[in-house]
């Protein structure tokens, strides 16, 4: 039991950067801008963050450098898509490759060096709560930050006027505009903030969970793509998205744990188990919307149909209506 608790505390810690990046992507996409560069960005920010912390010897400088890297990337994406009207998917994809190669190229001098890491800090009193204490409150500051971020971002998006504006800008920019809101300014702001959070996930790895910079062996390539799909799974809601992040990392851990019991299954198969799961979840989330399902449902008896509708509505959360669409005043 104790060992299991320790493992689960590890899952909570390992999920933290994913949670933060998913919330970042959620902010950006809620405003209507998709940041497809997340995969390369996390790798680059991890390298930059590590380099900054290593050079200065201060962890917070590294974290800040990661955030700034992300925010700068966000500004570049907003500039190219909002001001220059280029495809967000195209620019995001190019940047994803560019950032990754940049990280590997510029990171060479920082390979396998011992660098500073974020210290563990158990919260007094809270840490003594049975089960929950060791699970959630015997972690490092970054993990606590993620709890605050989850709660605050949820409150911000769904319970404040600012959040209402944010959602309006992503759903119906023309109505937001007619009420005197500067749509593009909002998009610039939230893309910079959101991408900054995605960038912050980088040093959260290189200064904590996967401490150090090991070039291509750092093992961060792929996480950004997971972040993008969890954002969809999360229905652009920080609570559901964070749940998705914890679930994903838990399944990853489960895959590794099963390996020792289940030696006949090669390790490579279990390591990619999250990816078929990711496809399956996206399938469950979206299948209710497809033409053939709608047609099949129409043939079902009324009572059964109602149940299915409810199920699909629960699973399916439509994306912000203006996601990826540049805003034109005319």
């Amino acid at each position: 039991m104790n060992e299991f608790l320790t493992n689960m505390a590890g899952v909570v810690a390992a999920a933290t950067p994913v949670v933060v990046a998913v919330i970042g992507e959620t902010f950006s996409e809620r405003s209507g801008v998709i940041n497809l560069s997340a995969n390369g960005l996390i790798v680059l920010a991890a390298m930059v963050g590590f380099a900054a912390a290593y050079t200065t010897g201060m962890v917070w400088v590294g974290l800040l450098a990661g955030f700034v890297t992300g925010a700068a990337a966000g500004l570049l994406i907003s500039f190219s898509s909002i001001s220059l009207k280029q495809s967000q998917v195209a620019v995001g994809f190019i940047l994803s490759l560019l950032f990754r190669d940049l990280a590997y190229f510029l990171g060479t001098p920082f390979m396998v060096l011992p660098g500073p890491t974020v210290n563990r800090f158990a919260i007094p009193l809270l840490k003594d709560i049975p089960i929950l204490g060791p699970l959630f409150f015997d972690q490092n500051v970054l993990v606590y930050f993620s709890y605050v971020l989850i709660a605050m971002s949820y409150y911000w998006i769904f319970h404040t006027r600012q959040g209402l504006i944010l959602r309006g800008v992503g759903e119906q920019p023309i109505s937001a505009y007619s009420r005197g809101i500067d749509v593009n300014r909002q998009r610039y702001l939230y893309t910079a903030l959101g991408s900054g959070l995605i960038g912050l996930a980088g040093p959260m790895y290189s200064l904590s969970i996967k401490a150090g910079w090991n070039g291509t062996m750092t093992g961060l390539d792929g996480i950004g793509w997971i972040v993008l799909s969890i954002t969809i799974f999360g229905g652009w809601n920080p609570l559901r998205g964070s749940f998705g992040a914890y679930l994903f990392v838990f399944l990853q851990w489960l895959g590794l744990a099963l390996q020792s019991y289940w030696t006949s299954v090669p390790s490579q198969v279990l390591q990619v188990a999250p990816f078929p799961l990711m496809i399956l979840t996206l399938l469950f989330v979206n299948i209710g919307d497809t033409e053939w399902v709608t047609r099949m449902m129409a043939r079902l008896p009324r009572g059964v149909r109602g149940g299915f509708y409810k199920l699909f509505r629960f699973l399916r959360k439509p994306p912000p209506a203006s996601l990826g669409v540049p805003f034109e005043r005319e």
């Binding site: 799909s229 969809i232 078929p276 496809i279 996206l282 399938l283 979206n286 299948i287 209710g288 497809t290």
Partner: peptide, 14 residues
């Protein structure tokens, strides 16, 4: 087309 999964994410997973 039959699952509503964006080709970008289906492709990445695959």
């Amino acid at each position: 087309f039959y699952g509503g999964v964006s080709e970008i994410f289906a492709g990445l997973g695959l």
